[in-house]
Design a protein around this nucleic acid. Structure first.
Lengths: 341, 341
DNA sequence: CTGAAAGCGCTAACAT
DNA sequence: ATGTTAGCGCTTTCAG
């Protein structure tokens, strides 16, 4: 039996498509890569129908090797995440994956090793495993961002960066977000406020606090020192209890995040107070946490989808045109009204 | 000036290493791929030091194209995840990424498009974008698993699969986990129990319920119908309140998950009851949720790291030796005692 | 607009 | 134990 008779199920390659369509392999490649100047509509039809008929899908490794584009975006997550970020990280990742998919890219998730935080980054860059890297929960002076900037790989951060770093970032307007929350509360007639938040001196935590203080001042409402607290989850609960059982309790408790708000809601319940009626509670984030509290949270929603889409766009821009001097982008939050305020 | 004088920063390739080490490219390749039969210790030293000196890192695309191995594992996540799984998914992903990294693999995260749930899978398989795929939250008769089985790509699931599917799965022993919880509670002298859980008829939810009922029976304790409830988060809260304020309230509330347990803890607090003192509450999972409640939860901990490591191992086994007939693996949970029971 | 040639950087299969 | 010869399947460059 001649070798040609083998029922061998060969992978279908670009040449098979070319043969089936009666054109050369490049024409197929051009169609594949949407180089519209280089083929006629008729050719396009022939080629695409041949691809469909053969069930052809280009081999990624070959494309990558030749074009030097992986169509993959790296996303760094921290290994240990017992904190507030928990819920948000997954929401963001989901959004990022969708945003990447919209432009035919995939997301490679990676973590660092404890003993060598930058090692993975070096590896990824050196091995050309990704076209760009996205960072979230970045600090202003972020080691990772600094390394990426030095190495020259395209990147973008969710969170603003120091002025001496490339401004490849997107962030939300924390101050304005809190202002909107305060405005709504004031419009509802609240006069006695408190602000509770997780501790930490990240700029966004400070911005949120600042937003509340300033906006209340704008409305002529003072926020007494004793009604401001930033600390651990436990500390927040304790202080919430103190405030709510003390004399002249706040009628509205603004918090720095949905996680904190959820904790406060729990405390209020435990004191037999009606949330949204006896006391208003607000959060910041607008993700899933706020939907499982009872009542649901009024919160400043972070527009995750816009954030991730922008991040992906900025990455690809750098991939295609080299490092740019675009400034950072600040996105507004959206006030979502739940039953908690 | 001659062209050779260009200060052109060329990528260092395998030939550069070979030249520097004074060996052929294959020898370098052999060292790279740990084919120990094919080089001497002396050669190894020469080659590795040359690699270090040149800062050489093999190009992934080229390796993939030639070896037909991507060193990437795909992980599918659902797009909308407002439910209990939330916290767990991220914990699992983190663990999976680490487990993959331990064997020099990376994790590619992807979601499906609503209108074509299997489309991404087809694409990934056809384009050889990953070596294997990991699924979590799989159902017994999982469409995704069925597709993967048909397509022949290596895969592994967190969650048992129907007998007519390849048994590429790992799962935890839900029944035994609950038994351990019940044992601890009984040992503490509890006699009046209740069981609250999220609704849904996934086998693991049924197994957990079953575990509680059987083990209580084993101890001679009856769980009245009225003390068993499965429903929405809201429903659970309502029922918890009813139970705790009714006559003859339970002294121990066993729940189907840490998320439900957290809700029950909130309800107990709202009724002024001390959790861990007035009423015991237990969860199932052992992740971050149980650490932020007050007190922390007593729970059956899912050994995520073992799960993900096993999943990765099973994937690689198939990659290397083809589909196997290994049976599914059931892993035990570990009882973690928090302050809630 | 289409075709032919060249090669991305590596590893498999063979030789030595 | 090391070297030689061929590609992997595509895209780039350049010629028609």
């Amino acid at each position: 039996m001649p070798a040609g008779a083998d029922r061998e199920r060969r992978r279908v390659g670009i040449v098979d498509v070319a043969a089936a369509a009666g054109v050369s392999r490049q024409t197929v490649s051009n169609v594949l890569n949407g180089r519209e100047e280089y083929y006629s509509t008729a050719t396009y039809e022939k080629v695409t129908s041949a691809m469909r008929a053969l069930g052809y899908r280009p081999n990624r490794a070959a494309q990558t090797l030749r074009s030097r584009r992986t169509a993959q975006i790296g996303y760094h997550i921290f290994g240990e995440q017992l904190d507030q970020a928990q819920g948000f990280t997954l929401r963001f990742l989901q959004s990022l994956v969708r945003a990447a998919a919209e432009v035919d890219h995939q997301v490679l998730v990676f973590t660092h090793r404890r003993d060598d935080p930058l090692g993975v980054f070096k590896d990824l860059v050196a091995r050309h495993a990704v076209d760009a890297i996205v960072l979230s929960e970045s600090t202003v002076d972020d080691d990772r961002a600094r390394f990426l900037a030095d190495s020259g790989i395209p990147f973008a951060c969710f969170g603003r960066l120091a002025p001496d770093l490339p401004q490849h970032w997107v962030d939300v307007d924390n101050t304005a977000g809190m202002s909107a929350v305060v405005d709504a509360l004031v419009a509802d007639g609240h006069l006695r406020f408190a602000y509770l938040a997780a501790d930490g001196d990240q700029y966004w935590k400070l911005d949120r606090l600042d937003g509340v203080v300033r906006r209340l001042a704008h409305h002529g409402v003072r926020l007494p020192k004793s009604a401001m607290f930033r600390g651990s989850d436990q500390g927040v609960r304790r202080r919430a209890r103190q405030l709510l059982t003390g004399k002249n309790p706040p009628s509205a408790i603004v918090t720095g995040s949905d996680a904190v708000a959820a904790a406060v809601v729990g405390v209020a319940h435990s004191l037999g107070l009606g949330v949204g009626s006896d006391v208003a509670v607000t959060g910041f984030d607008g993700g899933a946490v706020g939907l499982v509290t009872e009542p649901t949270l009024t919160s400043a929603r972070i527009p995750v989808d816009r954030v991730s889409r922008t991040l992906v766009a900025r990455c690809l821009r750098q991939v295609e045109h080299g490092r740019d001097d675009e400034p950072g982008l600040v996105l507004p939050t959206e006030l979502v009204r739940g039953g908690s305020a």
